[in-house]
């Protein structure tokens, strides 16, 4: 159930340094189960934030709430200074309706664990569908943009193939190109390598590495690959029980974790790998 907007939140974020993403008091419950517990999280423009933690800690939920795949129970999320979960109405903020959400979602792109490419479309068609329908690009411009992105992820040669003819790693690279084709400000990676065979994980992480180096894109990544998280993140957030237990630069989180839970988790994970 959604609760009324109980607090006064600013209608938009202003000032010198507006974060690209801001979670304020965000709570998400499934029945009695609290998945996110008054979460506060700011992500700066161009920052790469990695979310780690045990399963059930709410890490994937953070991305799903930000993408507005599901609704939050209380709190507010801003993207690029504008409310995402709420919309201005009669001078106040109310819960966002579908139409408002659809517009706000264009700021965010998401890559899923199971790729979720459209199986009846070729790689190229996957990448031009939304730009044509939503951004109202003409077909030529959309194809040009898509081909550029498919080239960037090393999939231009396979542009005419259907997903069923591509390997998992190839599908995930197409999915990244598809998300980028919408020119999002924020890109979300939800365990994008978890469903991949070990030998193709590298081709996907390579693409993400490229994005970090090339674009001034804000990224949030949920991953189990600690080595990659350590190498690529500006900041690592360790989630536990729907809250951020500890966060900081990767050297600190991985090198000298303060919280006992973080130490335990990392100990167990590093033991296993």
């Amino acid at each position: 159930m959604k609760e009324p907007v109980q607090k006064e939140y600013p209608r938009q974020l202003e000032g010198e340094k507006v974060p690209m993403v801001r979670f304020r008091d965000v709570t998400k419950r499934y029945g009695d189960l609290v998945v996110l517990d008054s979460l506060d999280l700011d992500v700066d423009e161009g920052e790469m934030v990695t979310i780690i933690g045990p399963s059930g800690s709410g890490k994937t939920t953070v991305l799903r709430m930000l993408m507005a795949l599901e609704k939050i129970n209380s709190g507010i999320i801003y993207v690029d200074g504008q409310p995402m979960t709420h919309m201005p109405k009669n001078g106040a903020l109310t819960w966002a309706d579908e139409k408002y959400l659809r517009r706000q979602r264009t700021n965010i792109g998401m890559c899923f664990q199971h790729f979720n490419l459209f199986p009846h479309m070729t790689a190229l068609e996957n990448c031009i569908e939304a730009p044509i329908q939503v951004l109202v690009l003409n077909k030529k411009a959309a194809v040009e943009r898509a081909e550029g992105l498919l080239d960037m992820v090393g999939m231009l040669e396979k542009a005419g193939e259907h997903p069923s003819r591509l390997s998992g790693g190839q599908q995930q690279r197409v999915a990244i190109a598809r998300a980028l084709a919408m020119r999002p400000k924020v890109l979300l990676f939800d365990e994008v390598t978890s469903a991949l065979d070990p030998e193709v994980i590298g081709e996907v992480t390579q693409v993400i590495r490229k994005l970090v180096n090339k674009h001034n894109l804000t990224m949030l990544m949920v991953t189990h690959q600690m080595g990659f998280a350590r190498e690529i993140s500006d900041r690592v957030c360790f989630f536990y029980d729907g809250k951020i237990e500890e966060q900081g630069p990767p050297e600190e989180i991985f090198g000298a974790p303060q919280s006992e839970r973080t130490q335990q988790f990392l100990g167990a994970v590093l033991e296993a790998t």
Binding site: M67, A68, L69, R102, R103, R105, T106, I108, G109, M110, F112, N116, L117, F118, E129, A130, Q133, V134, R178, A179, M182
Partner: peptide
């Protein structure tokens, strides 16, 4: 979810 995330 993919369709939602692409604002279709």
């Amino acid at each position: 979810e993919a369709a939602l995330s692409l604002s279709l």
